[in-house]
Design a protein around this nucleic acid. Structure first.
Length: 253
DNA sequence: CATCCGTGGGG
DNA sequence: TCCCCAAGGAT
């Protein structure tokens, strides 16, 4: 849920989710469409699909217990370099670098003296964080959490609160007089209004809130551009988020 | 490596 | 209003 989604937006849905499905086996036992429906408006609904698939794999291949080794975690659907290490470190206490967008920004500023991190580079980012970790497992875990939290709360993207920063006295960016970012420009995020993403969102929202199959006529009312509507629908079907039921459509069973 | 994949809040 | 960006991952 936290992947590309602000923490405050996750807290309540997560609590409700865990109350409904306390264990991987509980989630694995229900149709994947239930997970997609319960995902609600969290965004990136493929994550719901993958979380369910993840629960199935954990139940069938790992005895119902979330694995603790990074290489095992990386085999799970929807679990990448960040999530695998976050689980291994924060849930199990192992010693690994954990690099998310906050950590990348703090390192770029405090260590490299840059206003912002460039495009992500997994190997380079993990190595940079690894170099900052204390040897002791428990200390390394706290360091991971602390740097991530520093980036989330103090060393924020827009207006960093340098006056409140506990490491301001050793920050390279501050020492250099806050130079502007030099480097490859971030790829601009595509406009949402009018995008396929928006159309997919509209279609899925309709399916989530309907107890019965949705007809093509109902989908037509959602978006005037037939070609784009069909493209979005086809991509949802290809993703496994939507299933054709006769001439109608439903969430997957 | 670039692009796609939702949604919502804040500057 | 518009733009940015948010505990990323898969292709």
């Amino acid at each position: 849920m936290l992947q590309q989604t602000p923490v405050v937006r996750v807290i309540e849905p997560l609590a409700a989710w865990l109350e409904r499905w306390p264990t991987p086996a509980d989630l694995a036992a229900v149709p994947v469409g239930e997970a997609v429906r319960a995902w609600g408006r969290l965004g990136y609904p493929r994550r719901a699909l993958r979380l369910h698939a993840c629960a199935v794999v954990i139940t069938e291949e790992f005895g119902g217990v979330v694995p603790e080794r990074v290489d095992d975690l990386l085999t799970l659907p929807g679990v990448g370099e960040y999530t695998a290490r976050a689980v291994a470190v924060f849930a199990y206490g192992h010693r690994h670098p954990v690099v998310d967008t906050n950590v990348r920004r703090v390192i770029a500023r405090a260590i490299d003296g840059q206003a912002d991190a460039g495009p992500a580079s997994t190997n380079r980012d993990l190595a940079a964080m690894a170099a900052l970790l204390p040897q002791d497992d428990a200390d390394a875990r706290v360091t991971n959490a602390a740097i991530m939290e520093l980036g989330a709360i103090v060393c924020t993207a827009r207006s960093p609160k340098c006056a409140e920063c506990p490491i301001a006295d050793v920050c390279a960016w501050r020492a250099d007089g806050y130079p502007e970012y030099r480097g490859p420009a971030r790829a601009a995020q595509a406009r949402y209004e009018g995008s396929d993403r928006q159309v997919r969102g509209l279609i899925l929202a309709e399916l989530r809130t309907s107890d019965i199959p949705v007809t093509r006529d109902e989908l037509e009312a959602l978006w005037p551009d037939a070609a784009q509507r069909e493209r979005a629908l086809a991509s949802l079907v290809a993703d496994g988020l939507v299933v054709a039921s006769g001439s109608d459509f439903t969430l997957p069973q």
